[in-house]
Design a protein around this nucleic acid. Structure first.
Length: 194
DNA sequence: GCCAACGTTGGC
DNA sequence: GCCAACGTTGGC
């Protein structure tokens, strides 16, 4: 595995930006483990632990996250995958306890408490995007052609460069303006109906 | 260290 | 549900 260095912080905010993927639609794995975690869950839970990531590259990105960093929140494995909101790192990397939980689908027999293999961060809600930015829209934008989400489709935690993050916010603004003109669906329902 | 087999992700 | 992409595993 290649050692990763974090991308640079936004000089304006001192933050790094990332993208994390989650499935919004209920899906049970194994006996009874719900794997879905829609952004709306973070409206009722004050934070969530981003555990269950079992890819070393994704894990390394989480090890590089700092308190206060922003993560674009992406809904995958659904009819219209895309970025739906922003969450904030509220606890830096700590061992992912699911690796030691008997019966957990993420258990890793090779991992010991002395040297954990898997790590996670906690994130809390920041805000919803005014309008979902679908993968189609993101892929069609030349300024996002190098974005890890586009180039490394299967990685569930990816870095986002400052200029990419700002571009996403700009696209949100443009897209929301368009919604005002031709979308009758109340904002709060957009995620639900999609 | 190579690489075939296998497993997983996630768009479609 | 299919399957391409790609990461991981393990035999050699």
């Amino acid at each position: 595995m290649t050692k990763t260095l974090p991308h640079s912080v936004d000089p304006q905010t001192g933050k790094r930006y990332w993208l994390i993927k989650s499935e919004p639609l209920s899906r049970i794995e194994g006996k009874d483990q719900e794997v879905a975690y829609p952004l709306s869950n973070l409206l009722t839970n004050s934070f969530t632990t981003w555990d269950g990531v079992r890819n070393h590259e994704a894990k390394n990105h989480m090890l590089n996250m700092s308190l206060g960093d922003y993560c674009l929140f992406y809904h995958s494995n659904c009819p219209h995958p895309g970025i739906v909101g922003i969450v904030e790192v509220c606890k830096e990397a700590h061992p992912d306890h699911s690796q030691w939980e008997l019966g957990n689908k993420y258990v890793d027999p090779k991992s010991s408490h002395d040297s954990p293999r898997w790590w996670c961060v906690d994130v809390k809600f920041n805000r919803r995007l005014k309008s979902k930015l679908t993968l189609d829209i993101l892929r069609a934008d030349p300024e996002l052609a190098e974005m890890a989400l586009v180039k490394r489709g299967r990685l569930s935690v990816t870095p986002v460069r400052t200029e990419e993050f700002l571009r996403v916010l700009q696209m949100e603004k443009e897209s929301a303006l368009k919604d005002d003109l031709d979308c009758e669906i109340p904002r709060d329902l957009i995620d639900i109906v999609s």
